[in-house]
């Protein structure tokens, strides 16, 4: 993972919480009544959001790993709920690389490897662009080298 991923995850989480916060503030300013309860709600949102946006990225960064060997792709992801995924290179169907607007801001990219199983896409998040490009190239090359219809 690129270290920029930490900032990316934090920003992504913060944006989500800010939307909730904005909705709460809008609601409080528009309708009146029961102010203390709503202020308590806003405080709770701020505390939870701050905790999430600071702890989650660090936790994720410690968990997230990826590796490719000549035979397989392996990733480790998640934070509270963690996931390890492994798929043989010979079963790869497509390799996509995506950059969302936020990811572009932090000069990051992610790579998604899909197999014939709808349950098994493998996503490598938070790579810097060059690494992502290399990874896609390497995976495509090794996937092409194997025969069969990969089901």
């Amino acid at each position: 993972m690129s270290r920029a991923a930490i900032r990316y995850w934090a920003t992504r989480a913060a944006v989500g919480w800010l939307i909730i916060l904005a909705a709460q503030i809008a609601w409080m300013s528009m309708a009146d009544g029961d102010r203390p309860l709503r202020i308590a709600g806003i405080v709770a949102t701020v505390v939870l959001g701050a905790a999430h946006a600071t702890i989650m990225p660090q936790w994720r960064y410690r968990v997230h790993r990826w590796e490719i060997s000549p035979a397989a792709v392996y990733t480790q992801s998640g934070w509270f709920k963690q996931e390890w995924r492994i798929a043989p290179i010979s079963r790869i169907q497509t390799v996509d690389s995506q950059r969302g607007p936020l990811e572009q801001l932090f000069r990051l990219a992610n790579v998604t490897v899909t197999t014939a199983s709808a349950a098994g896409p493998i996503k490598v998040e938070g790579l810097d662009r060059d690494t992502a490009r290399h990874l896609v190239g390497e995976l495509t090359a090794s996937a092409q080298a194997t025969a069969g219809d990969a089901t």
């Binding site: 709920k81 963690q82 390890w84 995924r85 492994i86 798929a87 199983s117 098994g120 990969a150 089901t151």
Partner: peptide
């Protein structure tokens, strides 16, 4: 079997358990 997924929630990690999923095209 196309690939394997190991899932561990916080509570599963504390209990030393995992959920193992075999992914397949079928």
């Amino acid at each position: 079997v196309i690939g394997w997924t190991v899932e561990r929630s916080f509570f599963q990690r504390r209990a030393g358990l995992v959920t193992l999923t075999a992914t397949t095209a079928a």
